[in-house]
Design a protein around this nucleic acid. Structure first.
Length: 272
DNA sequence: GGCCAGGCCTTGC
DNA sequence: GCAAGGCATGGC
């Protein structure tokens, strides 16, 4: 068990705001996987304790995963352009935008199309069980999201058996692209070009691309717009195409628009 | 047993 | 460009 000082941070809000899907609450804390490690996380005040089953999880890897490198206070003060956003910032203070592994994030959000969170979680879990051995931490078994080389051995039919439905070929192609360095290439691009590039993958449109750019590539200006955010944006009188609304949001909230999105999104989902 | 789903793709204007 | 329908399955 190691300790990390985590200021201005809420583990609960960060892991339970729809950015990542496979963390589960246990009596000892949150159990999940990062890279090849089974990880247990618990927070007490500003103290974050963590352990990995093999001791391989590096502090820096964890810190990055949880978005602890983002200057939260200054980000929130920058995006709080109005009372509504300022209120969401107060209510959910400590929520951070994660920086999850790229391929895992891409697969997760391809699965999110026309689906729901329990189902996304289930499919990811089935994929993990197919290609990863069980690892145990705190007496609980879990399965790491498989690395690219092992995902490459998944046939489309096997993906279907994990409940992906018509998304199976999309995921299969995304894995192949990743294996050819596609995701690395995307990191070299500026935001809008990166979004266009991601959208060349089948099954990846504006919304999925923005989620992936925000939750794994670290493009904090990305502002994913789903049905929930559409409701929020209506109150800002933002109308038109996805491109138009997304441009409005980036212009209005600025370079950290993605943080505004995450707070407003979480706020919309947790308050009636 | 239906209805619905954290969008995307394909048509047809 | 933009508005409609269809979509494999599983959750509720």
């Amino acid at each position: 068990m190691a300790t990390l000082l985590a200021e201005d941070f809420s583990l609960d809000k960060t892991l339970c705001s729809g950015q990542v899907f496979r963390w589960q609450r246990t009596p000892q804390g949150f159990l999940g996987t990062i890279e090849e490690s089974a990880v247990l996380l618990a927070q007490s005040g500003r103290r974050l304790t963590y352990s990995s089953h093999d001791g391989a999880l590096k502090r820096k890897t964890l810190s990055r995963y949880l978005g602890l490198h983002h200057p939260l206070k200054s980000i929130l003060s920058e995006v709080s352009r109005d009372a509504r956003m300022a209120e969401a910032a107060r209510t959910h203070f400590g929520l951070r935008v994660v920086q999850a592994p790229r391929l895992e994030c891409l697969v997760s959000f391809i699965l999110s199309a026309y689906s729901n969170i329990p189902r996304i979680t289930r499919s990811l879990e089935l994929i993990a069980r197919r290609k990863s051995a069980a690892i145990t931490n705190a007496g609980a078994r879990c399965f790491a999201f498989p690395p690219r080389e092992r995902l490459m051995t998944l046939r489309e039919s096997t993906l279907r058996s994990c409940g992906l439905g018509y998304r199976a070929p999309y995921v299969r192609k995304a894995i192949i692209a990743a294996d050819q360095g596609f995701l690395q290439d995307v990191t070299e691009l500026p935001y809008l070009a990166a979004r266009d590039r991601l959208k060349t993958l089948p099954g990846v449109g504006d919304k999925v691309a923005d989620c992936v750019l925000l939750f794994s590539f670290g493009f904090l200006e990305a502002f994913p717009i789903d049905v929930w955010m559409d409701r929020v944006l209506a109150r800002y009188d933002a109308k038109g195409s996805y491109a138009a609304k997304s441009a409005f949001a980036r212009d209005y909230f600025g370079r950290y628009a993605g943080y505004a999105q995450q707070y407003l999104f979480h706020n919309e989902r947790t308050t009636l």
